[in-house]
């Protein structure tokens, strides 16, 4: 069970009819917006803990909705999209969405995403001091990384990447954002990113070939798992 106020933005009555009672049963309070304008005004009026946003809206582009919401609010936004809309999904994430679920989804998957988002909005703030998940602890103030209490030495780039992942703990971080975090936008070569993620895994994962902390989201980016979320 979890608590929190959720704004569901979808124009599909069938999906609303399913999600609304189920999310309620799971402990959320749910309000529904059926188009982009209602979503934008809903965020302002209700200050929800999570926005669940279907990218295909009748009145405006979902990405524009995200852009407008982000001007005034840091509310976690989870995008619902179809798997084939990869490019759109990544754009939405780059635009400021926090995470996504592919259609069709199982309720458990959606709930995990919502939980991560709610927790982040309630506990992690932009100036949180540390990220903790299972054996991993990232101390933002002291730039210190610990694994099971032992300090891990990271190169500056490795730390910047881990920092970006940890700041968005539990959420997917797009390649573009990670590249920006590590290289300041001076490269768009995914090969660099792959190499550094491999180095990070070497240092952090118990079994680097089967990572449990840093998960690859193929074609989209990476996700630092919040241990009790998995």
């Amino acid at each position: 069970m979890m608590e929190g106020h959720l704004l569901l933005v979808d124009d599909e009555p069938a999906l609303i009819a399913v999600l609304q009672p189920v999310l309620k049963a799971a402990g959320c309070t749910v309000s529904v917006a059926t188009d982009g304008n209602a979503a934008i005004s809903g965020v302002v009026a209700q200050d929800p803990d999570v926005v669940l946003l279907d990218l295909g809206l009748p009145d405006m582009d979902g990405k524009d909705v995200i852009r407008i919401i982000r001007k005034s609010s840091q509310v976690p936004i989870i995008v619902i999209s179809a798997r084939h809309q990869q490019a759109e999904k990544i754009e939405a994430l780059d635009e400021g969405a926090d995470d996504y679920v592919n259609k069709p989804f199982e309720i458990g998957e959606l709930m995990a995403r919502i939980r991560a988002a709610v927790r982040r909005s309630q506990t992690f703030t932009a100036n949180a001091e540390a990220f903790e998940s299972g054996p991993l602890r990232v101390d933002f103030a002291r730039r210190r990384v610990e694994l099971m209490g032992a300090q891990i030495r990271l190169s500056p780039k490795e730390y910047m990447l881990l920092h970006a992942l940890a700041r968005n703990g539990g959420h997917v971080v797009t390649h573009k954002r990670l590249l920006h975090a590590g290289w300041g936008g001076s490269t768009s070569d995914l090969q660099y990113l792959r190499v550094y993620m491999g180095l990070l895994r070497q240092k952090l994962e118990e079994n680097p070939s089967e990572p449990e902390l840093i998960i690859t989201e193929p074609g989209v980016g990476y996700r630092l798992i919040v241990q009790d979320q998995a």
Binding site: E12, A14, L110
Partner: peptide, 17 residues
């Protein structure tokens, strides 16, 4: 996908909750 999503969400909800 839309009906499938609704079916999947509903059925998995029935199982999970």
């Amino acid at each position: 996908r839309t009906p499938l999503t609704a079916i999947s969400a509903a059925a998995s909800s029935l199982v999970t909750y």
